[in-house]
Write a protein that binds this DNA or RNA. Structure first.
Lengths: 347, 347
DNA sequence: AGGCTTCGTGGGAGCGCTCCCATCACCATC
DNA sequence: GATGGTGATGGGAGCGCTCCCACGAAGCCT
């Protein structure tokens, strides 16, 4: 009798089961299961024998079997609704992914990535989520009217958002202090002497867009500068609209001397428009962005911007989600992380 | 008798099972299973009744139960070994993810994302893969000596690499024409009159690094320019070493008039060193990068670079993997996609 | 000494599905 | 009319695990 691994008819080594481990260790299935799951009520001696057998056989629990009976899946989904190609151009998403993955890697939770682009994929996602295929859901870049979020609330899956839909977000979320960050950006422009400060907003369908606009407004008001519609143009975080809006702004208000762009990409577009218009940055017009994405360091001139702790946001989201999965409760978590103004040459 | 959903003791609606559908449709489990899986041998009539019942009950198959018996998991893993913070700074990874996700979204395969940073995580990955928890594996940014790859070969999981370990890669892979791309970059430098062309290589532990160096060498040789060790310095695709290596190069060979950087990030570092040394780009020194990552458009001057079809690579990888899963065979796939030189202002 | 917990343990039941085989109705054939 | 397909169907067995209950061996109290 050798120690040769059991083999199925085709000759591939058959994976050892709980049963096999139990037989080898000379104990019952229950005991092995308790050892594997770290459950109490196992004698030191039994535990040792079982662990030995597990090692010898190279036993790895069958996740599907476990899921079938516990109906835990040990998986969480990270949902990224990436309209356009923002995923590729904005390091934001990659950093969130990094944070989430690194927090999860210490547990044995699997990370499922779900990119949602079309409405059709949105529908699939809905049926996916109602199929209880994950223990929890992380979702970033949320828009106020996203129907998937209502679904999440309705079916009661543990969920944590990156960002929020409104100031009264009912779901758990992790956000950065968008309002405060914007305010500090505009305060900086004021401090350096700008008096006619415009803003190119983000999409107002996202709370981040609205809050950054609010921060702009509050910073103006606190120093008594007028808030005028003329100096507020609406963008969508992309470079392209940043460029177009800035060009329009210059035509409308040639006298402006400062711009707060609601994202770095928007700022990049704005810088281009300013260059084309022959305006010097920061001397004629000072520019501040938001995000501190990797382009910020490479623009000409390098961009003064508001850094948000993206990776930490991802990490926090994952941690909160794990907590909610472990101890489901009606109370939701709300976390707001601070931002930081990064001074470079553009303002 | 109402149509009310069955409920478990806690009041949460119980998910309908195959059995429930069968009862409602007045057929056996077998028939429902055949309908759900699109298997032949079901009468039109039975199919209609079953589909009706499925719709009424909102039945969604339990994946775990299915996996338990078929030992298919309907999931593939995308493994990204991201030493340092390359994931965040290089859009490469995000684009690969996009490509993979978009190809997969048309099937009902799940995408599992696995980031591997430490050696400990590497070990976990190994045990993960030997646990047969996915039907296939995608892996990018492969290093020649990565032990995980041997493991993949050994356990025979379907796998497709993004990039390859050597020119004789035994596993299936999708790569871009690194050698040809580098060659076209250097040819361009030659064409614009450069005669003392240096290169800052990528890590030579990756085939991409070696092939790009080879392309550089071949381009020189075909026009009779000498290949000298002095003009070849070794980097690792990062900005930081690009900067340091370029500075060293300038000290060593102040007469150089062209640089081929093996990545855009490296080129960015090189541009900075050149600026600090007071050299004009492209007039004193022309610079070409590789990747056409998003920074390339924003550098000063904008970077001439070699575009690789990253998203298409991701898409192709996923497609090949699905094929290998569907029809396992000993023959592996090798795909090499073309690159394209993108002319901007730096050369 | 007898009854009481307490602890460690074994193993039956069952999660929801697929696989496969036995069955049956039906029709074509000799 | 008996025979032999053929195609549709139902349901048993079993995938590998957790849950839980029953059981025996100690240890504790009165």
């Amino acid at each position: 009798m050798t120690h040769a691994t059991e083999r199925s008819p085709e000759g591939r080594p058959a994976r050892p089961t709980l049963e096999a481990v139990a037989r080898r260790a000379g104990v019952g299935r229950g005991t092995v299961s308790r050892v594997v799951n770290g459950a109490p009520g196992v004698s030191e001696q039994a535990r040792a024998v079982v662990e030995q057998a597990i090692a010898e056989l190279g036993y790895v629990p069958n996740r599907a079997a476990r899921t079938l009976v516990t109906s835990r899946t040990d998986a969480v989904a990270l949902v990224i609704p990436e309209t356009e190609s923002r995923l590729a151009s904005e390091p934001f998403f990659a950093q969130i992914i990094r944070g989430v993955a690194s927090e999860l890697s210490e547990t044995d939770m699997q990370l499922l990535l779900i990119l949602v682009r079309t409405d059709q994929e949105r529908t699939r996602l809905a049926s996916y989520l109602s199929g209880h295929r994950v223990d929890g859901v992380l979702m970033v870049s949320v828009r106020t009217d996203d129907p998937v979020l209502d679904l999440l609330e309705r079916i009661g899956v543990p969920a944590v958002l990156g960002g929020r839909r409104s100031l009264t977000e009912p779901l758990s979320y992790v956000d950065c202090d968008n309002r405060g960050g914007a305010q500090s950006a505009v305060r900086h422009l004021v401090r350096r002497g700008c008096t006619r400060i415009a803003t190119i907003t983000g999409p107002l369908g996202m709370e981040a867009g609205r809050s950054r606009l609010l921060g702009y407004r509050q910073a103006l008001e606190e120093v008594g500068l007028p808030y005028t519609e003329e100096l507020v143009v609406h963008g969508d975080f992309t470079e392209e609209t940043g460029h177009r809006m800035m060009a329009g702004l210059l035509r409308q208000r040639p006298d402006l001397d400062g711009v707060f762009a609601a994202s770095d990409l928007t700022a990049v577009g704005a810088l281009r428009a300013l260059r084309e218009a022959g305006r010097g940055v920061p001397d004629d017009v000072a520019v501040v962005g938001f995000d501190d994405s990797s382009v910020a360091r490479h623009t000409d001139p390098p961009l003064t911007t508001v850094r948000q702790p993206t990776e930490q946001m991802g990490r926090t989201m994952a941690r909160l989600l794990l907590e909610e999965i472990a101890a489901p409760s009606r109370t939701h978590h709300r976390v707001e992380l601070p931002t930081e103004l990064v001074l470079r040459a553009s303002a």
